[in-house]
Design a protein around this nucleic acid. Structure first.
Lengths: 353, 353
DNA sequence: ATGAAAGCGCTAACAG
DNA sequence: CTGTTAGCGCTTTCAT
């Protein structure tokens, strides 16, 4: 291990630059740069000399200098809402994998539904710190600055579109249609009195899912009863489901089935009911939305509409990669991809009559 | 909205630089730089002129140029193992919050227990792309290059230390002691025949927890029976718990209680038992480790040893912030912080006899 | 095929 | 208090 690897004893702190490599290889810095970027454009001998100099010095190109010159940072910003549920874990996993493979680093940002945070990240983008942005959230970044950015940096949206923004690629599902399908399934199992626990108001996903619920009811000639729509969810979380349970218990004429706008809501609701001795699905059937990790492991295993989160992540990342590669000339068209959801039948719904 | 915000029609693509601001404000670039960094060092009038020029032009300092000059990127790298469970969600949440507040961006990297990935991230560090590194994982990055980096960039470890690396700060829990405490609790409830489902072999955490299990048994004068140690976990995941259930059913003389090395393992195990009609805790008591989000919502709610993940994240981030602030002179001592776990009694353990 | 030189956008001496 | 100047480390013409 004891080699001539320490250039000069006194030059302790300074890190090794392309200059050091050039000197050592007996060539110019331009040649070193070329040997790395365009190996076929230098002599075999030169290349060898350069690479051994690189190895000997332990040289790694400085990212900031490269970015400054190239006007590209090889980083993307992934914006998440930052609510602490696990819905986003597989998404982030897929994104990190594809981006890293494509040579990009992943900078994450949690917007936490806060204006100042959105402004902060808008600044990050304008500072040229990232080459692309992926907004993974049900919450629309309302910041004007934000919507004004994308002419220079490609932006994609996951799960929730922003109406009137053709400059963004979008990867989502048909929330309304899938929700209708979920409710139709309940109806097909003989349920006639079906309640709904919507997500937090204000979000596009929540209102679409509510819309789908109503569609299916209307379609079947069933009445839409406001007493069966248990609003008040603060998020797609357990607590919202537990809160909805109070509405259930307050009701005289109970529904036989419930469509929750998210798995976590469904799980919270089920737990609260079981705690008070209500059997699922013997007394009430429950269907969720998302198919998160815990849906299958819960008891009873949750019947739900699966959103292909991993696939959506892979597609969104691949598209962004493609758009970033083609400069910012906007020659690459944006994509609006709507994936299919899939009904996953497990144990939480039973047929009645 | 139609204002003079478009500087020159032809200067479309080029982004606004400090030069543009200086010209507009009628000062030098140095003054602009100062007005931003050291506002108190310029005249009131100058400051006003500069800031209105900034506003008018929509200027945002270029991150790459700043990093190149300042030799600091204001970014940290958070390395995660990348297994798809939700254990890390709150950790990442805490980290992002503290780092963002401290003015740092968070670059994430999933090592996925892959050598090449570790090498990749070692390169990111050496490229000066980050000012600090947080290794959040039970898996030790074995890469030599990795261990050789930290003289230049502060590195901290969470959940699992690397023996012989005083240059890293460490934030973990006493896995062995906490596990012993969990098993002691089982013993205090009258259990004498207690099984253990260890985590994946090779990890320090898994072996420590197994050690704690043995400690508590020995302490109580109970035999350590290899037939009650159900090895074969591949990770801290559901599947490992389900696999352990097979060992349970294969056994003639069943244990009355089980200590699982992680909540997810416990949940997978419980689910498998319940599926075959085994009651929890009526037939078997189960205790977990971690207190992840789902432990409390499961039925029965899981009794477990809580790791203060959020607090650990906050402390680790704060320490790294502090170490990054003090240059790389290494004058700031590293910390070895061992936090206390807490037994959370819920419904999955019952007293026997 | 290689080298010289310019310059990306910014900050930090150093003068004035 | 403000301007001039140099230069961070790299890539990229433009010559040779």
């Amino acid at each position: 291990m004891r080699k001539s690897e320490t250039p000069e004893p006194e030059a302790a702190a300074r890190s090794v630059t392309i200059q050091d490599v050039a000197r050592r290889a007996g060539v110019s810095t331009a040649t070193v740069s070329r040997a790395i970027a365009l190996p076929e454009r230098v002599t075999e001998a030169t290349r060898a000399a350069v690479f051994s100099a690189i190895r000997e010095t332990g040289y790694t190109p400085n990212a900031a200098a490269r970015s400054l010159r190239a006007k590209s940072t090889k980083m993307v910003l992934v914006l998440l809402p930052g609510i602490g549920n696990s819905f986003f874990t597989p998404v982030l996993n897929a994104l990190e994998e594809v981006f890293t493979e494509g040579g990009y680093g992943v900078l994450i940002g949690y917007t936490r539904q806060s204006r100042s945070r959105e402004t902060h990240y808008a600044r990050v983008i304008r500072a040229g710190q990232v080459d692309g942005v992926l907004v993974v959230t049900g919450n629309v970044p309302r910041d004007e600055e934000f919507v004004s950015v994308p002419d220079t940096v490609p932006v994609s949206l996951m799960f929730s579109e922003i109406p009137g923004t053709p400059q963004f690629s979008v990867f989502d599902v048909d929330n309304r249609g899938a929700s209708a399908e979920a409710v139709r399934y309940l109806i097909s199992q003989g349920h006639r009195r079906i309640a709904h626990i919507p997500g937090a108001e204000g979000g596009l996903e929540a209102s679409e899912r509510l819309g789908g619920y109503c569609d299916a009811l209307r379609e079947a000639g069933l009445p839409i009863d406001q007493a069966l729509i248990w609003r008040g969810a603060s998020n797609f979380d357990f607590a919202s489901g537990e809160r909805a349970a109070r509405d259930y218990f307050a009701l005289d004429e109970k529904p036989t089935a419930v469509f929750a706008a998210a798995d976590e809501i469904a799980l919270g609701f089920m737990r609260a009911l079981k705690n008070r001795g209500v059997g699922i699905p013997s007394d009430v059937s429950v269907i969720g939305f998302d198919d998160t990790e815990y849906a299958v492991h819960y008891d009873p295993a949750l019947t739900t509409m699966r959103q292909p989160r991993n696939e959506m992540g892979r597609l969104a990342a691949t598209d962004l990669l493609r758009r970033m590669a083609t400069g910012r000339d906007g020659t690459v068209p944006t994509l609006k991809v709507r994936l299919a959801c899939e009904l996953v039948v497990r144990e939480s719904v039973r047929a009645v009559e």
